[in-house]
Design a protein around this nucleic acid. Sequence first.
DNA 1: CGCAGCTTTGAGTGTGATCAAATACGGTGG
DNA 2: CCACCGTATTTGATCACACTCAAAGCTGCG
Lengths: 230, 230
Amino acid sequence: MLCPFRQACRHACGDSALPLAPGRLRLRAGDVLYTQGRPALAVYPVRTGGLKQVYESRLGWRQVSGFYQCGDVCGLEANEPATHNASAVALQDTECCAIPIEALHGSLADPGLRTAILANLRRQANRQAELLVAIGSMKASQRLAMLLLDLAAEQVRRGITDGGLTLAMTRNDIASYLGLTLETVSRLLSRFRSVGLITVRHRKLRIVDPDGLADVHADPDRVALRESVE
Amino acid sequence: MLCPFRQACRHACGDSALPLAPGRLRLRAGDVLYTQGRPALAVYPVRTGGLKQVYESRLGWRQVSGFYQCGDVCGLEANEPATHNASAVALQDTECCAIPIEALHGSLADPGLRTAILANLRRQANRQAELLVAIGSMKASQRLAMLLLDLAAEQVRRGITDGGLTLAMTRNDIASYLGLTLETVSRLLSRFRSVGLITVRHRKLRIVDPDGLADVHADPDRVALRESVE
DNA sequence: CGCAGCTTTGAGTGTGATCAAATACGGTGG
DNA sequence: CCACCGTATTTGATCACACTCAAAGCTGCG
């Protein structure tokens, strides 16, 4: 059995983001911000765009383990001795800052920055744990509903509340993240649409019925119920 | 659909381990060392026995997210503001130390202790990531083989190399940890035994063919192959 | 315009969940 | 010491969910 995450990572000329350039970094879709196993030299707050975190296991199985958007800080997953234990790959045109870790140690004195960093760390840890439970014991429809609600909550956190969002990632990325196949994700999105929970067209998605999605997240049979009602 | 992890946690008179007793703590099977959501007051290196880490998601789904044995440090999963984001429950009679976090900050000056703590952190983070990939995209037999190899490696790390190990956790705990059902775990153990990879009797387990297990970890079809060969 | 990658949809299959029952074990009290 | 009970484990039969294989459509880019 091959690794189900089939998408090859396009490494842009080594690590395209030369790590120590001060200030902003500009990435294009597919560019690698940093690579698992390499020394961690900086952390990267995201200004615009989006990235995926990709973990590669000892046996070479790759899986998307997180998504980064504006306001998230990439590179915090590194552990001592300072080595990244996941890679970050841009999903679209992306800009981020680079804060060298020496500078980071100083910045942590600033209470505002510190709480921001810690909040990021906690959010990522919680998401990781929730993801584990989701993949470990929830049905496919529940997992997808969870992701959509998470993405929507992110939007709200940064002030956009109209329920419309643009998926930066492919179906394959979503599938890998949720421990599913891309076909299943595609089918479920269609099903959610057909029962009136969302509208989707390619990467444009709108959550029509957040409460309904929350119901599905809590109990996957709700989708079937809605189907018969509709 | 109910939470598939059906086992109730027996809370021993609140948090039975009064957190600030200096030195050793003594727990019996089922006792709760600390509870998710409560303030993190200390970290707990394990001296003898074993514990499980249990995470409860926002919707109340419980899942075993790790196992602690002698040499592991419980409580490091806490994040600022200092709150445990998982619970720890003893699997058997267990002794551990309690290092209050104020004392911890001092101890980190000691290079030996610091590297020990950091090594623990890294090991736990890696295991978490490997587990995510395993649950997300590996077959049941691969996941179980992975766990058995991990447990065996732990034994080796502490000097016992005869391949015999005692499972402190129930089949249900294993199943929850691997994102399976207890029936599947039981069946797989029987299958592994019938093809000569291991011997099992209740909690006593011996790895007969480590290379064979590694093969199964890499490719689940190997079990079937061995079946026909045998 | 043509190609490559992403997405959708369909049909069939298999793994692991579910439901169910029998057995073995460990602790407790008579 | 033995009988008993609750819990853990094993094993069987059946079924559904999600995977696999396959083909066609859509999109964007060169």
